[in-house]
């Protein structure tokens, strides 16, 4: 079980690195926002694995807050990209 946890943490860490490359390369702002979105989802997964590893269930509260923040950030970025145009929905 320990090896499986280490392996999945390694895979997710690699995924974070790849997403980071996309964050740096861009080329446009929406691409970076997509990379950040993927970051937050990956971090939710990592916290889930760590809560199994340490046997602490309270980490799940952190994942809920993390997912909520990521969603709000995505909405905010989208509004920013459209510069609050006349579309009101």
């Amino acid at each position: 079980m320990d090896a499986v946890i280490k392996l999945s943490l390694a895979l997710m860490g690699l995924a974070l690195c790849l997403a980071f490359v996309r964050l740096i390369k861009g080329p446009s702002l929406p691409d970076r926002v997509v990379a950040l979105e993927l970051f937050s989802t990956l971090i939710v997964g990592i916290i889930g694995v760590i809560s199994i590893h340490t046997d602490v269930a309270s980490f799940l509260d952190v994942t809920i807050v993390m997912a909520l923040m990521a969603f709000l950030a995505a909405i905010g970025f989208a509004r920013f990209l459209e510069r609050g145009g006349p579309r009101d929905d």
């Binding site: 079980m1 499986v4 946890i5 392996l7 999945s8 943490l9 895979l11 997710m12 690699l14 995924a15 974070l16 790849l18 997403a19 490359v21 996309r22 446009s28 929406p30 691409d31 997509v34 990379a35 993927l38 989802t41 990956l42 997964g45 694995v49 199994i52």
Partner: peptide
């Protein structure tokens, strides 16, 4: 449990590879 964890991690890695490799937004 191990299978679920590993497949979840693999899917996330695939998502990251996709974000890096796929051609447009």
């Amino acid at each position: 449990k191990g299978t679920l964890l590993l497949s979840g991690a693999v899917f996330m890695l695939l998502a990251a590879v996709g974000v890096l490799r796929l051609p447009d937004l």
